[in-house]
Amino acid sequence: MTVETIIEKPPEKPDADQSMGDALLSHQKRNRLFQNVKIGSVWAALILILAVGLLQLRFDPGYIGEHYGFVMQGVLTTLGLSVASILIASVLALLGALGRLSQNSIAQGIAGFYVSLVRGTPLLIQIYIIYLGLPQIGTQLQSMGFTDLGKSLTLTAIQSGILALSLNYGAYMTEIFRAGIQSISHGQREAALSLGLSSWQTMRRIILPQAIKIIIPDIGNQFIAMQKDSALVSVMGVWEITYRANRFGRKDSKFMEMFILAAALYWILTIVSSWLEERLEKRMAHAYER
């Protein structure tokens, strides 16, 4: 476009309705921003009060500064544990949900038993059974001649942690997956079947893609909860955030310093996770945007 054509264009008349709408919109925007600033200030004030209070009570931030790196090294362990466990838990949950929804009574029985047993017992007990209980049975099996099987029941602390978290969260997430699958309208299944898709093809191609999109926020929630529950594996001496914080806190009786540091690290992890989950959710909503 040349300069002349731009100039020759008649000046657009200001549209009264349009400018009123614009004004309203910018007003709303300003209000929202102002609201967010106010909420942010409250957060800042609360943190400040906490900090000042603690400092008055001989809280030693310098100690945190000295041992900050040591505890930080546990972040990767915590994350690794959680990521591995949420992946395995999702597979277990999918199998569990398919089992619960299956017509087959054996599949239904196994899935129902799994969910009931695992949800009905504390995670800490599950960790103890896997880490301390299984080797005991393994030794017995070895003495009966099943050497390899017996040996395989002795798991490292990290393996035990991942197994326990996966089993535990797999049971809770079974119900999430089941609800997600059941929330897809029956017509979707009928349309797929009428095209000649098998039950499994219908599940894989039509139902699951829609169900997973719906349950992404719930899986995100579970992932956040799991990061915090992974602190329990510190009882086995896995060098993740909690274990590392506890080690120094105990040695120098600086519990408050070390555990506040640990708490802050978990908090940051969960904030980042929920931000990532929101982005994933938005990306997956693509097909549903008008």
């Binding site: 309208s185 017509g187 009928e190 349309a191 009428s194 000649g196 093809q201 191609r205 829609q210 999109k213």
Partner: peptide, 30 residues
């Protein structure tokens, strides 16, 4: 089922697929 096509009251299009994706789903999967 392969001898018959069925059209439903509620359409039952697959919302996670484009129009073309809906139409070719049976051809590709079945």
């Amino acid at each position: 089922r392969l001898k018959m096509g069925m059209v439903f009251q509620e359409f039952n299009l697959f919302p996670h697929m484009t129009a073309l994706g809906n139409v070719i789903e049976g051809l590709i999967t079945v």
